[in-house]
């Protein structure tokens, strides 16, 4: 009923662990897969070992989360052990990469293709670092340039740029990425950046001051972005942003997503979120007489 083929990735259900959530090591990723995720995404891997920002880095505010972790990474040169351990993962594993230049993106991609991840997510949209990511995902031309360069390196491994809702025209960015060789589109990364100020402390709370906003608050924006992207491309979409329950996931599928990312929901519902969301999707589908999730992908379009 929920079986999904996403770009050749055989998934027992369409839920995907979003990058940057619980993805620091192989053992925890495997646990997330056991707990019900249809696929899991590793935390973004960068060119060099990097500590990330000081705390506070991840906060929950009233309607979602806000984070500025700062892309900590052991670097691709230290990634071998995790990849090797992930060979036994019950669900397909998506690797995520970032860089601060096209050369760095291709360097990291080259560094990890030997480990044969099921797919490579290209993080061109993290709003938290001034150089890394940000500029790439807002412009169709630059995004396409990154995708093209990474595609040349990756051969048969499918690649999927992760887009930012900050782009003026996210559909145009998606279309440019598709033309450049993207096999799928991932949307959206966190919104913003935003900020939280504490009145009593008279200070921003995040050490980085600004951070990416996620969770229930951004769902309407995520739905709109995926809806627009679906009309602009023919490759499959991994839709995410504020998906917390089965009904949210169904709505995301209707906007056009084949696979559905889950991140902040793990704060509200724990690591069980994937199973809970899948079960709720099935309940809704049974009630509505929907036999396969495929039937409703893009159903909200005219």
């Amino acid at each position: 009923m929920l079986e999904t083929d996403f770009c050749g990735l055989k998934m027992k259900n369409p839920t995907v662990l979003a990058s940057g959530v619980m993805g620091c090591n192989a053992a925890l990723l495997k646990r997330v897969a056991r707990e019900g995720a249809g696929a899991v995404t590793m935390k973004s891997i960068g060119p060099k070992e990097k500590e990330g920002h000081k705390n506070p880095t991840v906060l929950e505010w009233e309607h979602g989360l806000i984070n500025a972790v700062g892309l900590p990474t052991a670097g691709y040169k230290n990634a071998e052990k995790e990849f090797k351990e992930l060979e036994k993962c019950k669900s397909p594993v998506i690797a995520s990469i970032y860089g601060s230049s096209i050369e760095e993106f291709t360097e990291v991609a080259e560094g990890i293709i030997g480990f044969e991840p099921a797919m490579i997510e290209i993080n061109i949209s993290c709003p938290n670092t001034k150089r890394e990511g940000q500029i790439f995902g807002t412009s169709p031309e630059v995004a396409a340039e990154v995708v093209k360069a990474v595609a040349e390196v990756c051969g048969k491994i499918p690649i999927m740029p992760k887009l930012t809702p900050q782009a003026n025209n996210i559909a145009a960015v998606a279309a440019a990425c598709e033309q450049a060789g993207a096999n799928a589109i991932c949307a959206i990364n966190t919104l913003g950046p935003g900020m939280v100020i504490d009145a009593d402390a008279r200070k921003p709370v995040l050490a980085n001051k600004f951070g990416g906003v996620s969770g229930p608050a951004i769902k309407p924006i995520a739905l709109r972005c995926v809806y627009q992207i679906y009309e602009a491309v023919s490759v499959p979409i991994l839709g995410l942003g504020g998906i917390s329950n089965g009904r949210d996931a169904i709505e995301m599928a209707m906007a056009g997503a084949t696979a559905i990312g889950v991140g902040s929901a793990t704060f509200y519902r724990g690591i069980e979120a994937f199973k809970l969301i899948s079960d709720e999707m099935k309940t809704w589908m049974k009630e509505q007489g929907v036999k396969s999730i495929k039937e409703i992908v893009g159903a909200a379009h005219d």
């Binding site: 620091c24 925890l28 991840v58």
Partner: peptide, 18 residues
Amino acid sequence: YMRCGFGVCGQCVMDDLM
């Protein structure tokens, strides 16, 4: 070493435990 403190970021992982 911890970041979020509430089981989301995965920074404090030990085996498959947060």
